[in-house]
């Protein structure tokens, strides 16, 4: 199979099953450098499984995935990939840690064993907190924050090691409407100004299409993949199996 020059994540002919149940069937998807891909699909469509395969937690039964042109099983430069998991929203809220401590975790893998945070790292943590608008909460306990604020802290943790790709799994679940809007503005900023490639997994298609550059629809198989401009409501109906009305579908980024 030909390798596309710009494909930072390439999914080739991937199938996966749990027991006798097909979860993914022959999925082909290339995520190009600099793009902002929204991966949508109903619950149980295999979105999360696909993410697990990309991150190397699951091995596909068929097909292969490459990250920066290296097969996942041999991939070593994990600091290039930032990940904000769905679980980040349901972590143990009683955990005694400050915002600063949580964000510093994002650097631990990069720093390596037997080494410690230095001044440069601390400055980087401050800058990243500034970027997500959480600097003044630096010394607050993570459990005291609202869902939207916690989410920004977890995004900062993923960003602090300066990844080239950021993967977010259902980041807007359990977050209030205003925070969702702030979230998408932040994502647009990261994509355009910081040139970070984004893969956003969500079942909330309406909110996403305004901001992303590309859309992929998954329901075991890939139903649609292309520019967000070409994405039509009819695609959704075929995906969800019934009529879906999109409330917002404008491509100007000025807001609804």
């Amino acid at each position: 199979m030909s390798t596309q020059e710009n494909g930072v994540i390439q999914i080739e002919n991937v199938s996966f099953r749990y027991g006798t149940q097909n979860v993914l069937e022959k999925v082909n998807l290339t995520i190009e450098q600099g793009s902002f891909l929204g991966l949508a699909g109903p619950n149980g469509s295999g979105k999360s499984t696909l993410i697990k395969i990309i991150l190397g937690f699951e091995t596909p039964d068929m097909g292969r995935v490459t990250l920066f042109h290296v097969p996942v099983s041999k991939f070593k430069n994990w600091e290039k990939i930032g990940y904000v998991s769905q679980k980040a929203n349901s972590f143990n809220t009683g955990f005694p840690a400050t915002v600063y401590e949580v964000v510093s975790m994002g650097l631990y893998g990069k720093i390596g064993l037997f080494r410690f945070l230095n001044k440069k790292h601390k400055k980087k943590i401050d800058e990243t907190l500034q970027l997500v608008g959480m600097r003044e909460f630096k010394h607050r306990s993570i459990g005291e924050l609202s869902g939207g604020q916690q989410q920004r802290v977890f995004i900062a943790r993923a960003l602090v090691s300066e990844p080239e790709v950021l993967i977010l799994d259902e980041p807007t679940v359990g977050v209030d409407t205003q925070s969702v809007q702030q979230f998408y503005h932040l994502m647009s900023h990261l994509n355009r100004e910081k040139k970070i490639t984004l893969l956003l997994v969500t079942h909330d298609i309406g909110a996403m299409t305004k901001y992303v550059t590309h859309v992929a629809c998954l329901n075991k198989r890939l139903h649609f993949h292309g520019s967000s401009h070409d994405f039509e409501e009819s695609e959704l109906s075929s995906l969800y199996g019934h009529d879906v009305t999109m409330i917002t579908h404008e491509h100007d980024h000025g807001g609804a």
């Binding site: 991150l55 937690f57 994990w78 998991s85 631990y108 893998g109 090691s161």
Partner: peptide
Amino acid sequence: FDEEQAKIS
């Protein structure tokens, strides 16, 4: 805090 995330890092 988060074993899965630690693994990815």
